[in-house]
């Protein structure tokens, strides 16, 4: 089905050339160099070559595009449940630099659709398109662009289990919302501790503070969960018990690493994943 549709779309060949809204112009070049901090004095007499795609961007209110092979293939994959997208490769070749006043148009063709592949993000298909920019009939630049359309690993964050928060633990969950991994630290004796609690088990002080952890650690142990189904998660997935460099251990899902490549001792760093109203810490390989 997906392969059939891919062949059909590929067989349509290059899309009709779609003209840029504006001719190459110094105002947009200057906006670009200003934003990117590019002080190259060759601009704006010449356009930065990496701007080639900018000229034909479809803008704030894009019209429906019936001839765009990437849009067509994305719709097919959306329909099949591969609703998430991430770009993986972009290879641009510039035959020459553009000058203000030149008017480019672009044409794209579906090059390849490969899948289904099991990736770190979930099962997905790699979709590759090739685009060519023209001035008149002269090709001035080309681009290979590859995306991964995938079924998100976190199927429904709405139904996923969310933490229960107490007065003793709310600092932790406030931290994750800010992208901080907070580890409880006794303000009296300085001992760090996870999971947190109201009283320091070493000195019995009732003065818990926290430190923002580096988020760096190593896998101390891990499991690969296959069964039974877990709300909000696609199987299988990896949960790792990580020993942080601060000296405490913490559980979290290990994302982006195929299960058979996980091992005790794997260096990881923290990432953050929103689930409902909360943000959970997750581990990523580093």
């Amino acid at each position: 089905m997906i392969t059939d549709e891919a062949e059909r779309i590929a067989a349509l060949g290059p899309s009709p050339r779609r003209p840029a809204r504006d001719a190459v112009n110094p105002a947009m070049i200057n906006n670009w160099t200003e934003a990117l901090g590019d002080g190259n004095s060759a601009y704006p007499e010449l356009a930065p070559p990496a701007m080639v795609q900018v000229w034909t961007m479809r803008g704030l209110h894009p019209a429906a595009e019936e001839h765009d092979p990437l849009a067509a293939m994305s719709a097919v994959l959306d329909e099949a449940g591969y609703t998430s997208v991430v770009a993986t490769n972009c290879e641009q070749t510039y035959h020459r630099y553009l000058r203000p006043g030149e008017h480019v148009s672009v044409s794209s063709v579906l090059d390849a659709v490969v899948g289904p592949k099991r990736t770190a993000l979930g099962e997905g298909w790699f979709v590759t398109t090739r685009s060519t920019w023209f001035v008149g009939d002269e090709p001035v630049a080309e681009m290979l662009f590859r995306i991964l359309k995938f079924k998100p690993g976190n199927k429904s964050t709405a139904s996923a289990l969310q933490p229960t928060v107490s007065r003793d633990t709310e600092f932790f969950w406030q931290g994750t919302k800010l992208g901080e991994l907070r580890v409880q630290r006794c303000s009296a004796c300085g001992v760090v501790r996870h999971p947190p609690g109201p009283m320091c088990p070493r000195c019995n002080a009732l003065d818990p503070g926290y430190v923002v952890a580096t988020g760096l650690g190593e896998v101390f142990s891990y499991v690969v969960h296959h069964h039974p189904p877990v709300p909000g998660r696609e199987l299988p997935y990896v949960v790792a018990l990580v020993e942080l460099s601060e000296g405490v251990r913490m559980l979290g899902e290990l994302v982006g690493v195929p299960p058979d490549e996980v091992r005790v001792g794997l260096p990881v760093r923290v990432g953050f994943r929103p689930v409902g109203e909360f943000v959970l810490p997750v581990w990523e390989a580093r």
Binding site: P163, H194, L280
Partner: peptide, 21 residues
Amino acid sequence: VSTAAALTVENSWSYPMGLGT
């Protein structure tokens, strides 16, 4: 996976992280 069991503060360090059985 017991959704009810997940609703304790103590289990909030494991269940939401995917370790709930």
